[in-house]
Design a binder for these strands. Sequence first.
DNA 1: ATCGCTCTTGCGGGTTCCCGCAGTTTCTAT
DNA 2: ATAGAAACTGCGGGAACCCGCAAGAGCGAT
Lengths: 242, 242
Amino acid sequence: MRLLIAEDDKLHRSFLEGVARDTLPDLDDLTITSDGEDAIAAFNTSDYDSVVLDLQMPKVTGVEVAKSIWAKKPHTKILFWSNYTEEAYIRGITKIVPGAAVYGYILKSAPEEQLKLALQGVFIAEQCVIDREVRGVQQRAGDRLSGLSELEYEALIDLCLGLTDKAMAARRGVSLRGAQSRLQHLYQKLGLDKGDIPIGEWGPSFNSRTRAISLALTLGILNADALRREEENLKVWLSKAN
Amino acid sequence: MRLLIAEDDKLHRSFLEGVARDTLPDLDDLTITSDGEDAIAAFNTSDYDSVVLDLQMPKVTGVEVAKSIWAKKPHTKILFWSNYTEEAYIRGITKIVPGAAVYGYILKSAPEEQLKLALQGVFIAEQCVIDREVRGVQQRAGDRLSGLSELEYEALIDLCLGLTDKAMAARRGVSLRGAQSRLQHLYQKLGLDKGDIPIGEWGPSFNSRTRAISLALTLGILNADALRREEENLKVWLSKAN
DNA sequence: ATCGCTCTTGCGGGTTCCCGCAGTTTCTAT
DNA sequence: ATAGAAACTGCGGGAACCCGCAAGAGCGAT
């Protein structure tokens, strides 16, 4: 068994290394990298069947590393090991996981025992091991009731990037009214219906447009990190479209 | 010397404990807590002259803990130990540090050597020890040129919470035009002047109102955590004012 | 085929926002 | 004391946004 680890925090890195050595008996090779680029490079120069990825890393996210890895070898087993349950990451992962791939998702705050079980479960028993909390978010995302559809999610991103309605329409290839319609649905899902916002004597307290961003952030649908990455995508589009 | 530590992450906690024991020779008492409330409780039941605080903790931030501590004993030495250089935190700290207090600010990503130096510098030599990176942010915040004034910062918070102009005006006790004027200055500082935003064939790409939020987040002036706390303040005000 | 669901589009109007202009107050510095 | 900077205010107009209504396209299920 050949294992590749990518994790930027020094402490967590050495902790993880220790646990992995303890838990996995037949470890032929163990390579440890501290950012996404190195991880991809390492994967391309040698053969690994198992990978542990932190999600938040400088330059290249764990999600992107996974994408690159699975594009090359879809049967690679990947365990995601992260601090947060941000819906943005989970969405990213479920979008790129190949049909029959084995993967896991566990939180750093989980006790050591759970980490050990996850390592064995994913890499030895080849099961999918997904943390309870994460599982909750995952279901909401797939569920039409409390979660956002893919289109609404796109609208949310554009909104959070600060685009105008017109720009959204242009970017997504729909009419102005189309973009506004998506926003409207988004507002509804987030509970910004007319009745729901408190009204003081000075009038309605919230501006739907900005309040939507606020909610997305506090509810953990998006985070600053994901935003910075979307900003990159936007730049690409802007330069291509101008 | 009596030391109190507050840090929620298990690994960092034990790492910090180890380093502290190694580095500080005459440690009469060492208490370790894993969230802000416990830290305040511990401080109130016993006497500590030195404290190490993580900034991001559940329920009560390190900043709030420091505030409570300094309110009781302004000469307590505090070392802040954090992941990020968010301007929101730094602003919070510089606002509450008593005139002659000794304190330090160091990043978790710094090498162990620096942490040792900071511990000794703050607790033994009674110097203020502030990380280079943090110092940069601090200066920008105090500087009128690239930083935001207190008023503009307030406006930014209200904006990020999703308030309308009218609500901001009511909350801050100024006229509608006054609130809008603050926003206007904010936009200017963030580089949202008319000339600065790219214009595609479909018109201006950015909506100043939402773009300001986007910039605040990606530049690290605010984060989701700070936002959630401001949300609490807002709720208090809403119930008091309606 | 027909119903139902989602997504889209045009139109119209009411609201909010953005901001230039101009006048006033307050505070600081020389 | 006087000049200058920073903040607040009212007014007014142009732009952007929010959204109800109605009609149509596409798709899967009965």
